[in-house]
Amino acid sequence: MARADTLARARTLDRPELAYLLRFPTADGMRDLELTWAELARDTEWVTARLREHGLAAGQRALLTASGFEGFWGHAVIGALRALKVPYGIAEAMGWDHRRTAVFHRELTPHAVIGLSAETLGGLAGAADIGEMFRSTPLVLARPAAVPLLRGVGVTAFVISAVGPALALECPERSGAHVNAAEWRFGERDGQLTVAAGEGRTSPLPETPLGITGRVVVGRCGCGSDNPRVLLAEAN
């Protein structure tokens, strides 16, 4: 097997611990942060548990819409889907690619649509009834700006969002998007979210205002998790 041999050879290389240098917007401009393979593995495990809570399981299919620069969380989501044995289709999150989202949605009948954007919905709206299209999809994990659009047409949408360097994912309780407290410390200042890296992260990140309007809810969630939840203004 040709590709398998190529990858076997690649595994003999002296590869760095580092997988990504991710960049995210803060209140004071873009900032970057290193992301190691060990951290990606932990992020993947965390996302796997979140998707499992939503009932995602073998025998189902998913559709992921994402952009080329979103690999740092795309990696964790794809890793989770693989762990759950859920094959996924993939399309761009950019508005002009809405046709592929529509075709994947029609042909693969995905159990979960992950990363749906307001731009994709805008593109789809010309040719389809968004409500009719997604009401029958058991799990819709949408980006914050897409959530009100979907809920407005009767789709039970859950939030998925990069919040700074972290991924926030709403649980079935739909009462805010959980962030992984083992990795990140979220806070709020003047109605804006802040983030700091947890002790286990390789790359230090002091408390950083993100310029995202929202609140942090601590205390146990109805789902049983003690992980804090962020309530993003844009999603409400």
């Binding site: 290389l13 590869r15 760095p16 997988a19 990504y20 960049r23």
Partner: peptide, 14 residues
Amino acid sequence: FQALGAVVIEVDTW
């Protein structure tokens, strides 16, 4: 890219 040991910098290149 990462299989070759390269580090990916997340930049919107569209």
